[in-house]
Amino acid sequence: MPATLAMHMSDGLLDAPASVLFLVIGGVGVLLALVRARGALDDRTAPMAGLVAAFIFAVQMLNFPVLPGVSGHLLGGALAAILVGPWVGALCIAIVLVVQALVFADGGLSALGANVTNLALIGTAVGFLVALGLRGLVRKGRGGLVATAFVAAFASTVVASLGFVAEYAIGGDPAFDLGTIATTVVGVHCLIGIGEGIITALTVGAIAAVRPDLVYLLRGERRPLEVSA
């Protein structure tokens, strides 16, 4: 059985004060996302957000090889941010993580706050900010959008893994050299980030080709057709 490195943190990696600290941070972040997303979630879009969450959940089941014996799975932060925007995206991923912990025992209950902080908050925020920063590229057409999605997904994965390193520095076991941990974790996530980037880019490209109205990042980009006599 190949070892899967990119999975949710289990109990016991962080000590109790850090676990509680990140439960609070994650909770406050999700609440903020909820407040900001509320305007966008009406009786039509809230069920659709449920669908996006289910989609992210299903996509996270997808494993791809990064090194012999090590496989990673998609985290989906950048994908969610590009498709439904940062607030709804963060909310969806947080709900995915809560359900995974409660229903599927994936990720420790005490590590839920840290997982939400890394994947739902940091992953989505970084993915969206990078995509926003590359807006000029997005305007250049489909190739630009695909390239932006790749860079955003790569950055989001690597920065989310830095979130783990920061959490480990706060509440992890001091037996290990933090530098070694950081190099290993960030190194593996650079490889995962490439896979994440390719899949995110091709997925966003395929969706934008058929239904550009479903890509949040493209909103307001398309000028209406001009009809001239």
Partner: peptide
């Protein structure tokens, strides 16, 4: 309630 709606429909759609 928004979170409950999303979570319920997520489990159904999954």
């Amino acid at each position: 309630s928004v979170v409950v709606t999303i979570a319920t429909l997520m489990l159904r759609y999954l």
